[in-house]
């Protein structure tokens, strides 16, 4: 049981987090644009998140908060 909170407006859509997520549950949200004009990252299956915080450690813009 883990919870991921994403500061979508700080995301620049670089996708480095998708590369390090062991569960492959992070994707760019093509349906949405944030305040900066990027497609922000979103979690497609929160139930699978293990709260390892790899995404948060890789993210250059510190958009993730991880609870476990």
């Amino acid at each position: 049981m883990a919870k991921l909170t994403i500061n979508e407006d700080a995301c620049k859509g670089c996708s480095l987090c998708t590369r390090v997520c062991p569960k492959h549950i992070l994707e760019l949200n093509r349906e949405k644009l944030n305040a900066k004009g990027y497609h922000p990252i979103h979690c497609i299956n929160m139930d699978e998140c293990i709260g390892c915080a790899s995404c948060a450690r890789m993210c250059p813009d510190v958009v993730f908060t991880v609870e476990r």
Partner: peptide
């Protein structure tokens, strides 16, 4: 649930101006 990762208080709320994917933000 306990917070295992959050933005450090040593960084301000100002968003980084760096390009997408630039490792300056990590540093």
């Amino acid at each position: 649930m306990a917070v295992v990762f959050e933005k450090t208080k040593m960084l301000t709320d100002v968003p980084f101006h760096y390009c997408p994917g630039c490792t300056h933000g990590i540093a």
